[in-house]
Write a protein that binds this DNA or RNA. Structure first.
Length: 936
RNA sequence: GGGAGUUUAGCUCAGCUGGUUCAGAGCAUCUGCCUUACAAGCAGAGGGUCACUGGUUCGAACCCAGUAACUCCCACCA
């Protein structure tokens, strides 16, 4: 292809030379020559590389993203803060493209658009990275202490933090970067501490022992939402426990299976976690289980360690699972814990924080839980306690951040009560004050809010906001902002401790969950805690739209609504647009391990930011997953190129000032068509149908503007265009740039500044241009041109069928009783159909190929190419079809119930269908007769 | 186990209040074109039992019931 182009250019160059030397076969006048040179100087394809950086910097330098409160209506979006140390992935690309489209549109509608960017400190993920970095240096977190550790962590954050924000710039994100916030910066941290104290005073924050999801790798508790359950192939081990009758003597510690005891002296439990048997404090059976009636009231002995445990009864045990005997391990299983609470069982925790066994296990001390599992199975087997092993599939929880297997663990944690806050948050959504888009998420939201559990907010990490709890030497604690305040409170609390000193207080080691800072985001980014009445918060809050992923509907969106209500008495945003998950083209979720996620910046380099933006938006309606395929980006790039080439065409025109304008109808048509499309686009946007709005824009540009309008008005080669058409076309083009801008900011800004559109002052940019308003729509012209387009398509069709070159001119006649005055559109029809002569005739043209548009008849005289047999067959097929159609219409019209129930306009439409079908049939019959088809 | 959703062309999806002359796009396919804006293009064509079964209705892709397949969310039967 490339080779072909260069050849073409070479020929052209030779011609030029000839002309210059004055012995060419034809001469070019001055105007044509300049036109020719101008086209040569513009690249045939759009080249985004330089323009993207150029315009992004221009926008930045001219402060177009900057927003400060003024008299205009605000439009605000707060970005869902990505992890500060994260890198851009396809999900971010989609999400932020949508936000940018919304923000740019609002800006172009005259609103004061403010998109607040920022990042989140992602305590677990970041701490994991920092700990790993320190480990490489041979440093242990505990050895250097909290203060020094935080220095390293901040250093890390400064070094790697915010890369993702730089990447967003490549996408064209028009964030107000001056407002960039970070969830751990001072004022945001202060807000976290203040809200903690506020909620504690309300009695909504409390400390308690709970079974939490323990991440032994991150060495912290994580919330339920941060646990990902996956189905895993496991083994189910059947283990024999000796049974003791209460009346019998304690068996010899050396007794084994071989010592002559019968099997009735054993019971068998089934477990996936044999390494926890040392923590068992009971065996549980269902009281209704006939098989085990003889065990009621007896005791069992844990193998290997020979500890005695009671056999308890509870209907919780499913009789038909496993053996019907359940080992109860309150310290290491939530259900067992609850069972233990109910039955007053002892709790024995045999695991260390890192997942190794502690001395309470008595055996295998120091072994990792998974290594211990293997070893204990061997020990059990050696001593004959292992009955059998089965393959078994079950769900295991993994830590979202570290992918470690979650260990249920009892520990002292801080909790936030959710019930009171959930109620108003639910109401906002149920009443429609906050809209979820799509609304199918309302049900999910409601379910969660009605079944909300208390939120475990403490994390055993250092990277984050330290919990403002201060402990007295006697174990009592106070909640205070700092040591001084804590000391004051502590003095009151512990007046009996006469010599309590400030230094005696120790602050809680833990930090709060990252979500405990992100739930304040829409308020804290405007300093709404520090200064609740400042201009920013009063102006920008509540924000307008939130664009995020449904995965975090609960732990982020719902909590922001709670915080908004609790701390400002107002909702934080009005619309929540939930994007889908970006998957690969065969439907797999994009993930690092699968390696199926393309590099976003690579895509931008290959297909342009504009191309990737529209490629992503194309097939991603709200809430639907996006099956990503690079082909979409290619489509986007081609679209940009199409716009570029439309520009090249118009740019190349010479204008003359003759007084005639041959294109008034085309101009009027496109104007109406533009306004019609604008109506659709507005309507789509108002319903957040962004991909549909894009498609409507695409069709307007590609089909209506390029394929039809420009072809209609395009002057013949080497001919100038009239001033009136030119001016109108430039105006259309400018409007097209405007409506394209939110989707494709770079190419539109680039073209906007071309001299084609007149001189632009420094601040006259597409990004701040005002979107066109909907103007008049001439429906008559719209429908007429639709018919004209059909005529042209039919002509092209005949050319294709009859193998007539598009270059060959043909004749066309139309019957004079047509519904549309086609003669008015003669120039359009002749030009696009390449018609040499267009006549209106009163009689059928014999020996012509005929076609119909609606009920209007057209003839293309092609006597020599006419195949009467084929024509007759075609006519008969049409006749059959229309006859059948007429029958169905007539059956409706003769149906009394239809006539009685259908709306009048429907009946009218049916009557029109009937008349049209009859007219068509009449014409078909005439044509059949004219061709003497009866004889064929 | 509970809940929600999806099922329309080979693929990805529209189809909004049940009612246009045969249910629409894009991609892919086929045919013909290097036609002076664009081969990243132009012109044209083919392609559908709207998952299945029943019901409501004058009329169903659309409403209702059932069935099947898939997806997601919630729920820790060891």
């Amino acid at each position: 292809m490339v080779h072909g182009h260069s050849v073409k250019f070479m020929i052209v160059a030779v011609d030029l030379n000839k002309t210059a030397m004055g012995h060419g076969p034809w001469t070019i006048d001055h105007g044509q020559k300049s036109l020719f040179l101008r086209n040569m100087s513009i690249s045939k394809t759009y080249e985004p590389k330089q323009t993207e950086d150029k315009w992004y910097n221009y926008w930045l330098e001219h402060n177009f993203f900057r927003s400060v409160p003024d008299e205009r209506e605000p439009y605000t979006i707060v970005i869902p803060p990505p992890n500060v140390t994260g890198v851009l992935h396809m999900g971010h690309m989609l999400n932020n493209t949508i936000q940018d489209v919304l923000v740019r549109r609002a800006r172009m509608k005259g609103k004061n658009a403010c998109w607040v960017p920022g990042t989140d400190h992602a305590s677990i993920a970041t701490e994991a990275k920092v700990v790993a970095m320190l480990k490489e240096k041979g440093i242990n977190k505990k050895d250097i202490g909290r203060e020094k550790y935080m220095e390293y962590a901040w250093e890390w954050k400064e070094k790697y933090g915010g890369i993702i924000l730089e990447q967003l710039k490549k996408l064209g994100a028009s964030c107000d970067w001056d407002r960039t916030r970070f969830t751990m910066e001072e004022s945001l941290s202060e807000a976290v501490i203040d809200t903690f104290i506020h909620l504690y005073k309300k009695g909504w924050i409390y400390r308690g022992i709970r079974m939490v999801n323990w991440d032994p790798q991150g060495k912290t508790a994580v919330s339920d939402e941060e646990v990902i359950r996956k189905e895993v192939n496991q083994k189910l081990y059947y283990i024999r426990y000796k049974v003791l009758s209460p009346e019998s003597e304690v068996l010899s510690q050396n007794a084994t299976l071989d010592s002559g005891l019968s099997t009735s002296d054993f019971l068998t439990i089934a477990t996936t976690r044999p390494e926890t048997i040392m923590a068992d404090t009971a065996v549980c059976i269902n009281p209704n289980d006939e098989r085990y009636k003889h065990l009621h009231g007896k005791k069992a002995i844990i193998p290997l360690i020979n500890r005695e445990i009671p056999i308890i009864l509870d209907e919780y045990v499913t009789m038909d699972f496993g053996t019907g005997c359940l080992k109860v391990t309150p310290a290491h299983d939530l259900n067992d814990y609850e069972l233990g609470q109910k039955h007053g069982l002892q709790v024995i925790d045999i695991l260390n924080d890192d997942g190794t066994l502690n001395e309470k296990a008595q055996i295998l001390v120091g072994e990792d839980r998974f290594a211990a599992r293997k070893k204990i199975v061997a020990l059990l087997e050696a001593d004959g306690y292992l009955d059998k092993v089965e393959d078994y599939k079950s769900q295991i929880g993994f830590s979202e951040r570290t992918d470690a297997v979650i260990e249920p663990k009892l520990s002292m944690q801080w909790f936030c009560r959710m019930d009171e806050m959930a109620k108003p948050a639910l109401d906002y959504v149920l009443k429609g004050d906050i809209k979820l888009i799509p609304d199918k998420f309302i049900n999910t939201y409601r379910y969660w809010m009605e079944n909300v559990k208390d939120w475990c907010i403490s994390r055993q990490l250092w990277w984050g906001q330290q919990i403002p709890a201060w402990y007295l030497p006697n174990g009592q604690f106070v909640i205070a902002k700092n040591r001084e305040e804590a000391f004051e409170l502590a003095k009151g609390l512990a007046s009996h401790i006469s010599h309590l000193k400030s230094e005696d207080l120790t602050q809680d080691e833990d930090v709060v969950d990252t979500w405990f800072s992100s739930w304040l985001w829409p308020i804290s980014v405007f300093d709404g805690f520090k200064d609740p009445n400042n201009d920013d918060i009063n102006y920008y809050y509540p924000t307008n739209d939130l664009v995020t992923a449904p995965e975090i509907l609960f732990f982020w969106v719902a909590r922001m609504i709670m915080a908004g209500h609790e701390f400002r008495g107002e909702l934080p945003f009005r619309n929540v647009y939930l994007t889908g998950i970006v998957r690969d083209k065969i439907g797999r979720k994009m993930s690092k391990s699968l390696g199926n996620s393309p590099d976003p910046l690579g895509l931008i380099a290959d297909y342009s930011a504009d191309g990737v933006r529209v490629g992503m938006l194309r097939s991603s309606p709200a809430g639907n997953d996006l099956m990503f395929d690079e082909e979409h980006c290619k489509w986007g790039r081609n679209f940009a190129n199409k716009i570029w080439n439309a520009f090249r065409l118009v740019k190349g025109w010479e204008v003359d000032d003759r007084n005639e304008c041959p294109n008034r109808l085309a101009i009027e048509w496109f104007e109406s068509r533009f306004n019609q499309a604008l109506t659709e686009i507005e309507s789509n946007f108002s319903q957040f149908r962004i991909s549909e709005a894009l498609m409507a824009t695409y069709k307007l540009v590609w089909d209506d503007f390029c394929a039809w309008y420009l072809e209609m008005i395009k002057p013949a080669y080497q001919h100038p265009i009239d001033r009136e058409t030119y001016t109108a076309t430039i105006a259309f083009f400018e409007n097209i740039l405007k409506i394209l801008h939110p989707f494709m900011p770079f190419i539109t800004e680039e073209l906007w500044h071309d001299e084609l559109f007149g001189g632009r002052s420094e601040y006259d940019c597409c990004i701040v241009a005002q979107l066109p308003t909907i103007g008049k729509i001439n429906t008559q012209v719209l429908s007429d041109i639709e018919m004209v387009k059909q005529v042209i398509t039919q002509i092209r069709n005949i050319r294709e069928e009859k193998r007539i070159s598009p270059k060959e001119k043909i004749l066309l006649s139309a019957k004079d009783n047509a519904g549309v005055s086609y003669k008015v559109y003669e120039s359009v029809i002749s030009k696009l159909g390449n018609i040499s002569s267009f006549n209106i005739v009163s009689d059928k043209v014999v020996g012509a190929v005929s076609f119909m548009v609606s009920t209007d008849e057209f003839y293309v005289p092609l006597a020599d190419q006419l195949d009467p047999i084929a024509e007759c067959a075609k006519l008969r097929k049409d006749k059959d079809y229309y006859a059948g159609f007429l029958r169905s219409v007539n059956s409706k019209l003769s149906n009394d119930k239809f006539m009685a129930n259908a709306k009048p306009e429907i009946v009218e439409a049916e009557l029109k269908k009937k008349a049209d079908a009859e007219a068509k049939l009449k014409v078909i019959d005439e044509n059949l007769a004219a061709l003497a088809c009866d004889l064929q």
